[in-house]
Design a protein around this nucleic acid. Structure first.
Lengths: 253, 253
DNA sequence: GAATGTGAATCTTTTCACAGCC
DNA sequence: GGCTGTGAAAAGATTCACATTC
């Protein structure tokens, strides 16, 4: 998903698999909960359950970070919290800007677990002059004109795009030009960015469509009252077929 | 991620890889845009670029659906739109409930591309009695008490959870008991559900943490003004080491 | 005895490269 | 000549199962 740097040729060693990186935040959240309940140690089995994965995977994941457990005992909760935080880069404070303060942008600004660990909302930015100065989540909304100066004044390297799809690429370009190198995109668009800039994407309708796919299979492969528009006719002849040759009933004529 | 059914033993054939399913919505969006511009056909190369993937992957993905292209020419845009929509189950209409109408829930309710293709917001549900009846995105908010009847009256099988973390599991249980079998979870919690129920998760802070991980590497493996709390001391001795034996400088004593 | 850490086996996904067709 | 469709190879991720350590 993320573009990422393609290099890092020599040295090796710090090659944590992407799939593992994506799970570290889950472990961290589960560990933080344990830490708050003052649980001193936890086994891979318990932690895995809390994080919603299986224990073999968790142990393999941790093995990429180092040997941070104790055989016969488990993991020291506080120690692991620290190690994972450090690995994720959360022992430093990341200033973040949110661009596009509509419903979604406001929701993000108000999101608590945000400021809580490693991230700080440096500014909320919107293109609507009527929004400028209005406080959202305790911060005054600033106008897009100020984008570049906000980025450089605060040393922002992470930007969140919550604008309408039409504005996203343009905002992205400005963020990148101003020095942002990681972008979290909530707009339903494919952003194009230069090498060295990471983009991650959160997209409601994609997630729903994936659910619909699986939901459809559950209903018995055929059931469900189709409300489909007639399939667009296709000039071509007869060569068309399903994957293994089993032609579905709904095939367009 | 999603729990999914583990079976589907015989028949085969309709075995579309999960990674492919996750990309179909991307292709569909790109194709819809082409369709609106009345572009009649598209090559794998062009479409791949528009969707942000490479063309070999796209062709492989499509090969799981069937042979829907024409060699030497490309793909018929309208025809592909229909085929992918059908595969994703979007040729029927999915009623969806959104539970938790805070900032985020309201943002989701207002999200346009939602109703546009295959999904219909059947109801907005919130636990706050003060919200009940208030219109959000043109729909009156209904109270949690009505959850079960709303689900069954509308034949809802997809639920979106946008509540605070503390309420999520409880809401989830009620949704599932009432007949929902696919859940999109925006609350930062691991939901536990019975077999046969799919859960997908969207989590802002996880995405940010993944970005932070990569961001950290860019800054030169060491740079950045650490604002770290002192690492929690650990009783244990000396056996600790990094992955390849290279002990990081920040190691706790 | 209990639980980690990790090679080896397995499964999934991506990429390559080219035969086949228009 | 151009572009799809797909076997085969390569890379990546997960699971198994057990030696190792406390």
């Amino acid at each position: 998903m993320a573009t990422g740097r393609t290099h890092r040729p020599a040295t090796r060693s710090r090659g944590i698999p992407e799939a593992t990186v994506a799970r570290l935040p889950l472990y961290l959240r589960a560990l933080t909960a344990l830490s708050e309940r003052s649980v001193p140690t936890v086994s891979s089995e318990e932690l895995a359950t809390a994080a919603g994965v299986n224990s073999a995977k968790l142990r393999k994941d941790f093995s990429y970070l180092g040997s941070y457990g104790t055989r016969g005992v488990g993991y020291d909760v506080e120690y692991l919290v620290y190690q994972i935080s450090r690995e994720l880069g959360l022992t430093q404070d990341w200033p973040v800007v949110i661009v596009g303060i509509g419903n979604l942008g406001a929701a993000l600004a108000n999101y608590g677990g945000f400021a809580s660990r490693g991230f700080r909302v440096a500014a909320l930015i919107d293109a609507d002059p009527a929004m400028a100065g209005k406080p959202v989540a305790g911060l005054p909304v600033r106008h897009t004109d100020e984008l570049e100066s906000i980025i450089s004044d605060n040393g922002v390297s992470i930007g969140v795009i919550a604008t309408p799809a039409g504005a996203a690429q343009q905002v992205c370009d400005r963020l990148v030009a101003a020095g942002v190198t990681s972008i979290l995109n909530f707009a339903p668009t494919v952003l194009s960015v230069p090498d060295g800039v990471d983009v991650r994407k959160v997209d409601l309708s994609i997630e729903l469509q994936i659910l619909a796919f699986h939901e459809q299979r559950k209903s018995g492969e055929d059931a469900g009252q189709a409300v489909a528009p007639p399939p667009p006719l296709r000039s071509a002849s007869d060569g068309r077929k399903g994957p293994d040759g089993d032609v579905p009933a709904v095939m367009p004529a």
